[in-house]
Amino acid sequence: MSFSVYARRVRDRTLPHAHRRSALRSAVVLFKPFGFRATWSYLGTVGDLDRDGDALLRALEKLESSRDAGIAERAAFAERRREEKRILHRQRPSAADTEFFRGPRWPGPDGHRAVVHEVARLWRAHAGSVPELPAGATGATGLDIVVCGHVLSYLTAGGRLDRHRLDAVAECLPGLRRWASPPPPHDAACTYFRRLLRMAELILNDPDGATRQQ
């Protein structure tokens, strides 16, 4: 079924709460900016989705707002690309566009709040010792220290980093992507650096995460 059908079921107060909640979950399956688990976690900030019918409506409103913004954003990008091809003969999107659409994003007015929530959630899961790393992975340890410092600064500042720190995070992306796929049997290290990479990408795609340098 379509997203709109599930949305109507969420709004149908004649249905049992469990059916409406299930419909919202199905809608999230169809549109999940951060993946299902992370998207559901953010929607849960509006209230008790297990018991509160009004919370279901508030969550649906956030989800629909993001979906509508994403559709409009992609349409605007497609139109701009057509113009670039026609006028500038630019066949490939810019590196900035590629990076922007590559990373995790929450389109719409909740973009900043959603990113801060997800970075904080991942940071809680990230706490603990660094797992065993492949032989000769001294660079990975330094990378971990640097990125963790920036993530902590971002959260401490309420979801803000100055441009210098944002640039430093961006410079760490190639290294993070390399260590996010280490050879077996380093699955724990892979999970660790994938989570670190995810936090870095989220911060860089925060629509309101930059502050002016002092």
Rank of each mutant, 00 (worst) to 15 (best):
S26Q: 15
A27Y: 08
A27R: 02
V28P: 00
V28F: 01
V29K: 13
V29R: 09
L30V: 06
F31A: 03
F31W: 14
F31D: 02
K32L: 13
K32Q: 10
K32Y: 13
P33D: 03
P33R: 03
P33A: 07
P33H: 04
P33W: 02
F34Y: 12
F34E: 07
G35L: 11
G35C: 13
R37Y: 07
A38M: 15
A38F: 06
T39L: 08
T39I: 14
T39V: 07
T39S: 08
W40M: 14
W40H: 09
W40I: 11
W40T: 15
S41Y: 15
S41P: 10
S41Q: 11
Y42K: 05
Y42S: 02
Y42N: 06
L43E: 07
L43G: 03
G44A: 09
G44T: 13
G44W: 11
V46Y: 03
V46N: 00
V46F: 08
V46D: 01
V46P: 00
G47S: 05
D48Y: 07
D48S: 10
D50V: 11
D50S: 14
D50Y: 09
R51S: 09
R51P: 01
R51K: 10
D52S: 02
D52I: 10
D52Q: 03
D52E: 07
D52H: 03
D52R: 02
D52T: 00
D52Y: 08
G53L: 15
G53K: 04
G53Q: 10
G53P: 05
D54M: 03
D54I: 04
A55F: 08
L56P: 01
R58W: 05
R58A: 14
A59S: 03
A59I: 03
L60G: 01
L60S: 01
L60N: 04
L60M: 02
E61D: 12
E61N: 10
K62T: 08
L63H: 00
L63Y: 00
L63F: 03
L63Q: 01
E64P: 12
E64L: 15
E64S: 12
E64T: 14
E64G: 08
